[in-house]
Write a protein that binds this DNA or RNA. Structure first.
Lengths: 252, 252
DNA sequence: CCTTGACTCTCACGTTACGTTAGGGTTTAT
DNA sequence: ATAAACCCTAACGTAACGTGAGAGTCAAGG
């Protein structure tokens, strides 16, 4: 029924010291102890450990994990779904790493030096908040307020999930473009629709009209253009076209 | 031409402190300094930083990265290819995490508790060396010696690449099984062939005969069986069948 | 010319997530 | 009953930076 430290350690593939540490910092205290003071882990403890390890794998600090799990309003199901989204985002990120790696391999085989900008494009994350000052001039203030209202209450986990989803969509656009799919094809419009719904869900109500306006910005605002062009040449325009096609279909 | 710290930091998405640190530990010292002592990074420095960040992303310690990059026998092309393999392995790993997560989500929705063993199956890596003592009894000593000879000279990077490739193949087997593909179908035999070549490349010369012998072990040696069964019920037998089918085709 | 703000430098201590002895009880197997 | 294998707490070590502190440097503007 109850497991000792070393049993749990072997089961979960972590060190005994790690379990001691999680106990010390109050992240995972076994629900009981033996008479002689031995830690005894029960099923609920293992479930918690499972979540801890998952979140750790996703790059959360132990402190953050503790906050997430101890939050009384913590919805385990929603949390698991967010984790799924984040892992998918990570996979998308790694796929882009592979693409970048292929570029480096090619460059090396051809003996041509790689562009310095594109060399690092895959690292670091694109945090839209950094661009708020720029965007503010173009957005109607209402949308921005709504976006800020929503995002301000986001937990770090939700925020990461949003970013991950975002990257996944961008990646799909890029993949479709590489595959030679037309921007107004069914499949690519579907991605555009996902893009719209994602913004709608995470940031602000995004009608087709607003979405189209956003598309315009992608090709006229240097910040946005640069972001997508770095990802793949011509991608900003491609996404712009896909969004317009999708909106036209929905509108007409 | 030359970039200052903050420029490089912005370009690569790291902190200035990180660049200072890499200089301190001798991982990346800019090739020149200005008169007043400012660090000046040139193209070659950026290329090196690129490799550093990639390897860091793959989980290498800075110390290990320094050894890899400073090794005079360091083959950049081979290294890049290994990195590709490792990233693909990581992707495979993350895909399994998603599967595990789905299981957790399902369990939670149905209100049934998850099996404690399968709860943690996705964490930790399967290091075949742990099983050498067991395997020794069954293997002809020669193969083991050859395997040990080869792996002993492996760099940590190579070792990780081998593990990653291994996990990718296992994952493909599992995916095929889930998709309902027959073990003797063309596609699954192709995976078996990849499995054979991978062993041949990384561990010891693996003829179809030896491969078949290995397949027998997968279903008779508890260690191996447990490993694959944990990954997916019936997987050990499935892989066994695929290997036999593949060997039969090649042999006949 | 000189000031102001944005950078740069070198210490140097702080932090996170454990690893690693050290010293000392406990449980189990022979 | 005695060794081997576990368990405990305590405490210092380490990796990869973060975070100032104190001081020099550089470009733009009044």
């Amino acid at each position: 029924m109850a497991h000792t430290v070393s049993e749990v350690a072997r089961l979960a593939g972590v060190s005994v010291r790690t379990l001691h540490h999680y106990d010390d910092v109050g992240l995972l205290s076994p629900s009981s102890r033996s008479e002689s003071g031995y830690r005894l882990y029960h099923h609920t403890d293992l479930e918690r450990l499972h979540e801890v390890l998952f979140l750790r794998e996703l790059g959360f600090a132990l402190d953050e994990i503790r906050h997430v799990l101890d939050d009384p309003g913590h919805d385990r199901l929603a949390s698991l779904r967010d984790q799924r989204t984040m892992i998918n985002g990570k996979i998308a990120h790694l796929r882009r790493l592979v693409v970048s790696l292929d570029a480096a391999i090619n460059a090396h085989e051809e003996g041509i030096p790689m562009n310095e900008d594109e060399m690092f494009e895959v690292f670091g994350d694109f945090d839209p908040r950094e661009y708020e000052a720029e965007v503010e001039e173009r957005w109607s203030g209402e949308l921005l307020d709504e976006s800020r209202r929503r995002t301000s209450s986001y937990t770090k986990q939700q925020w990461k999930a949003a970013m991950a989803e975002s990257e996944a969509v961008t990646n799909d656009f890029a993949a479709a473009k590489r595959a030679g799919d037309a921007a107004d094809s069914e499949a690519v419009m579907a991605i555009a629709e996902r893009h719209r719904l994602q913004i709608d869900r995470w940031f602000y109500p995004c009608s087709y009209e607003i979405h189209t306006g956003l598309a315009e910005m992608y090709v006229t605002d240097a910040r946005f253009t640069a972001h997508y062009e770095q990802s793949e040449a011509g991608l900003a325009a491609y996404i712009h076209d896909a969004i317009k096609a999708n909106a036209a279909r929905a509108g007409g």
